[in-house]
Design a protein around this nucleic acid. Structure first.
Lengths: 330, 330
DNA sequence: CTGAAAGCGCTTACAG
DNA sequence: CTGAAAGCGCTTACAG
């Protein structure tokens, strides 16, 4: 590895001068500059960021902690896009991203501190205590995709869960549906609470009585969860004419269960999902769903974190717009 | 941040002694040990890995470069599992992983050098020159999921593309198929070459004449690519009775195109994919495919890289077994 | 404009 | 068993 010492020796100036030229700070002569830059170039010099970070107290590394309590969530298409877009956005701004899995969260937290990450993005559900620990170590944090009730001021980036849900139900109501099932995800997830609120609000504005028998809770929001929830929903009388699933994976389960009973989607029962994962447009029938912008989510999380790293102190709440995508399941 | 200096002061010994005790090296008395450990505990001391790395020349960080030439590959379910399992495996061994996107590969490479990554995993197709640059900087490299022809000795982890393909075609032949279409992915991918070889070998062993009209190349191996390739295949006379797609996404395109012509899968034409991505079992008809072990792939890549970091010098080739999963499309 | 010096937080011989 | 010292590769005042 070539160091400033090597460059200093070869260009006949001191390390200090080399350092000043290379970091473009302080003053130096054009002559020195030319010599130093030329040698650095020839030697393909790259500054050692560890050494730099020791002094500047800034590594230009951010941590991305992925939640994995429910299913292997990193491999979930939804979170994968966040990782991808976060990496891209961070790279553009001169940061690198280190990915951690919250399965061994305490371990990750220790790593984050030891490795001097500048800040952390927590994607998905996290325990309050995690945010607390980070905050008490003065590490900037941005929460993504779900929020938690904390006494600490924390920035977060979430989807407009309420609005997306509201729009979906309103569309269903406008299409003539009056009995609409709703499948709620894990109870500790704020996102699903918001989606339920949007559901209720649409009923209210549509002046339709809301019947709680059609709201079902499902702790494992995947295909199997959707199937189980649908079994409950289809035990009601009258049958719902539409089902709004808390997410796309559950929605696919809903369709599968409906089909298995010899009923047809959307003729007998219409189905709407939430997320617009890649499969939703590929599945048959293609799923009507509330699209969230996963790419933007990663980007905004990075942007907000960097904003904090650069000194902003107030916590920011960023709500990303959703869009109803109408396909074949309604 | 609490440092060994703080601990030294509070426990009344020198920094050297604290360092020795904390890193459990050299010698020290039990009395000192007890005092130091207690204080370190109380102060919730975590060593600064930057400082440590400066001396040991080891960061315990590895880079994972994800290829994204064809589609946003990080968000591709296949690569997401690799990221996930690599992070898990690395964590278990005391390493952290930094994710880079090869879209800006030179930029990433600079980062990798500056940030002193101990080693690199290159997932997906990479240009020879990248491996060369890494090697000439003495950075250990492991190639994953595709290999390249390089004069440098490099370790890689790949699937048994030949064997998986061979088994799939043999199964098709055993089921009575004689005219089997094959959709090859990008020409520069060794994986697809291997899959084609397996296809040919099965024909050879089945003593069936191989007809090159049934082999089609497709540079964009996604659903649309599968649809286009199928159009070519269905222009042949006689029609193939089975189509083996180079990957699952293309296989789904194949099925869509077959369906759109009013033909039925598998009755008119059987379809087999490769990968066994999550969606393959969800799609209808559920896809018969060659399963690859994405989780194991990430794990083995990490394991092999660590093996090198610990001094192993020969390059290792790890071929992961595949498994034919028979579902509804055949 | 330039160089010597101190220091970031740690590790590692080396004397005592 | 213990402490002082040197050093990892850089940055940053500070004299000159």
């Amino acid at each position: 590895m070539v160091t400033i010492k090597d460059i200093a020796r070869l260009s006949g100036v001191s390390k200090s001068t080399v350092a000043r030229i290379l970091s473009n700070s302080g003053s130096y002569s054009d002559v020195s500059k030319e010599k130093v830059l030329k040698i650095a170039q020839e030697l393909n010099y790259k500054p050692n960021s560890l050494a730099r970070a020791m002094i500047t107290k800034k590594t230009n590394n951010i941590g991305l902690v992925i939640h994995s309590r429910i299913y292997p969530v990193i491999s979930h298409p939804f979170f994968a896009s966040i990782v991808s877009s976060a990496v891209d956005a961070a790279t553009k701004q001169g940061y690198s991203v280190m990915v951690f899995n919250d399965k061994e969260i305490q371990n990750s937290l220790d790593n984050i501190r030891q490795k001097q990450m500048d800040g952390i993005i927590l994607a998905g559900y996290v325990d309050k205590s995690i945010v607390q620990e980070l905050k008490s170590n003065y590490i900037p944090v941005v929460l993504v995709n779900d929020l938690i009730d904390t006494t600490y001021e924390t920035s977060y980036v979430i989807n407009d869960d309420f609005g997306g849900s509201f729009q979906a139900i309103q569309y269903l109501i406008d299409s003539g549906h009056k009995t609409i099932g709703f499948i709620h995800g894990p109870k500790d997830s704020q996102s699903y609470h918001q989606r339920l609120s949007g559901y209720k609000e649409a009923f209210k504005q549509g002046k339709i009585e809301w019947d709680e028998r059609y709201v079902v809770y499902q702790e494992t929001p995947n295909i199997e969860g959707g199937i189980q929830a649908t079994k409950q929903l289809l035990a009601a009388d009258p049958l719902p004419t539409a089902i709004f699933a808390g997410n796309d994976m559950m929605a696919i389960g809903v369709i599968k269960e409906i089909k298995s009973r010899g009923l047809q989607v959307p003729y007998d029962i219409a189905v709407v999902g939430f997320d617009d994962i890649e499969f939703s447009s590929i599945y048959e029938p293609a799923l009507t769903t509330v699209r969230t912008d996963k790419k933007l989510m990663g980007e905004m999380a990075v942007q907000e974190l960097i904003r904090q790293l650069e000194g902003a102190d107030e916590a920011n709440t960023i709500t990303l717009p959703t869009e109803l995508i109408i396909r074949e399941s309604t």
